[in-house]
Design a protein around this nucleic acid. Structure first.
Length: 428
RNA sequence: GGGGGAAUACCAAAGCGGCCAACUGGGACGGACUGUAAAUCCGUUGACUUAUGUCUUCACAGGUUCGAAUCCUGUUUCCCCCA
């Protein structure tokens, strides 16, 4: 059995824990849970810190439990949120829960018969049959409103004056009861969570103490930050999701590859299961040859493989080298159609009939057609003069040149506006 | 209520009768360099077209002039000072 706390510590994943937890875990196999509210039909990388904590917990020989909040998801956690959340309906919640289950299985071992196999629970199962009267008699009695209001997370909402409904206020009580329930029925003695969950988790431990005289522990992981101060896990396109439909494996891979040097070391500790020695080794290499970005590449590889699998990773790698490497017309032409379409998955496609294509007088006409690539011919010309347009990886210099590029696979042209904007022209 | 000032393109800020589609800085977008980075340097930044052209802009509505963002009148908004 490995030392879970020590593991988190060197990885920089330990924000806070209740006293005694370290000794508690040394007694033998324990069980810990992490709650995830099914607010969307996919996890995003913000969830990953918590999930990785569970992963390390399992790797340390303990039993992890993931709790999807079918009940709490209906309420909405007010912690550090400035406005009242929207309620989700049952149907959406169930879809979300199922999607999240599938994603969790990529990280945790739910199969097999080993003692520490991961479990998935849904608090809807025990909250739904619970009547309101029973709840306030059995649970509400043990925790005072004074205690609940003293939490930072609640206090802030009260001070801001945006209001806090009773529904959201009761969230911490429900989460507290979850902890109690799992402690009582599943011998779960530890709750993990983000640092914003500290208050909620402690309420649960308090409930266990008051209601049953039991002992339970809390452990929180730090909020992930970025060296430049901007918010972690966001791109211009919004959240970085684990669902390939929402964030393509390529975009996912790119996100990690583009992590700054300062952040890469921190992230590789948190988001991969590489051991300390390997990481130090990678960091040394990175020190010596920062331009190779070995650290980012390994980080991106590890996570992409874990989330999307080896095959998707290789495709993302291929796409990256074609899009950003020194690839040439030959490289492009060498791709078979299927790979080509996969590499350029998500790139806008401009469809042209063969007649339309033949009728084009010059390159500018092509680029300004439909206003999709450029809004006007003038704009296209300017960009060409500025050296910002390539077709099939060959830079265009003359706006009036005829369209004489060979069609890839007899039907595609790859248009590049600037470095990162790709368009496909499909003829026929 | 009285007095003074300001309104300019994405933002900031020049211009004060023709040389103004409007200096300059920031931002944005391109290019070079590079690590798909940072820093730096260069270019573009009203629209359409590509001729060295047309059209629409300098709060709004009128006016004076061959000609105005620049002068006059009114309207609106904002700021400052006195009450």
């Amino acid at each position: 059995m490995k030392d879970f706390i020590a593991e988190l510590r060197w990885r920089g994943m330990l924000q806070d824990m209740t006293p005694g937890l370290e000794n508690h875990l040394k007694e033998g196999m324990k069980s810990a849970y992490l709650g995830i509210d099914p607010t969307a039909d996919s996890l995003h990388i913000g969830h990953l810190v918590g999930v990785m904590t569970l992963v390390h917990f399992q790797r340390s020989g303990h039993k992890p439990m993931a709790l999807v909040g079918g009940a709490t998801g209906m309420i909405g956690d007010p912690s550090f949120k400035s406005v009242e959340r929207n309620l989700l309906d049952m149907e959406t919640l169930n879809q979300n829960i199922n999607a999240i289950k599938t994603q969790l299985a990529k990280f945790l071992d739910f199969e097999g018969d080993q003692a520490n196999k991961a479990d998935l629970v849904n608090n809807y199962d025990w909250m739904a049959p619970f009547s309101f009267l029973e709840f306030i008699r059995d649970v509400g009695k043990h925790i005072t409103v004074n205690y609940m209001m003293a939490k930072d997370s609640v206090k802030r909402r009260l001070e801001e004056g945006n209001g806090l409904s009773f529904t959201e206020f009761s969230y911490q009580l429900i989460q507290g009861y979850d902890f109690y329930y799992l402690w009582k029925n599943k011998s779960c003695s530890v709750q993990l969570g983000g640092s914003d969950q500290w208050g909620n988790i402690v309420t649960g431990a308090e409930l266990i103490r008051k209601k049953a005289g039991g002992e339970a522990f809390a452990l929180t992981v730090p909020l992930i930050t970025k060296a430049d101060g901007s918010k972690f896990g966001k791109t211009e396109g919004g959240n970085v999701w684990l669902d390939a439909e929402k964030t393509s494996p390529y975009a996912f891979y790119q996100f990690w590859l583009n992590v700054s040097d300062e952040d890469a070391g921190k992230y590789i500790r948190i988001f991969t299961t590489l051991d300390q020695e390997s990481i130090l080794h990678l960091e040394n290499e990175h020190q010596e040859a920062p331009h190779l970005r070995g650290l980012q590449k390994e980080l991106a590889k590890q996570i992409t493989v874990m989330v999307h699998g080896q095959q998707e990773f290789e495709l993302a790698l291929k796409a990256s080298s074609i899009l950003f490497g020194k690839s040439s017309l030959e490289d492009l032409a060498a791709l078979d159609e299927r790979t080509f379409l996969q590499v350029f998955d998500g790139v806008p496609v401009l469809r042209l009939s063969t007649e339309q294509f033949k009728a084009l007088e010059n390159t500018t006409d092509l680029l300004a057609l439909d206003g999709m690539i450029f809004n006007s011919k003038g704009e296209a010309r300017k960009m060409i003069k500025g050296g910002g347009v390539s077709i099939n990886k060959v830079k265009i210099n003359d706006p009036n040149a005829e369209v004489a590029m060979p069609l890839l696979q007899e039907k595609y042209l790859l248009v590049q506006k600037g470095k990162k904007n790709y368009y496909i022209v499909k003829v026929g």
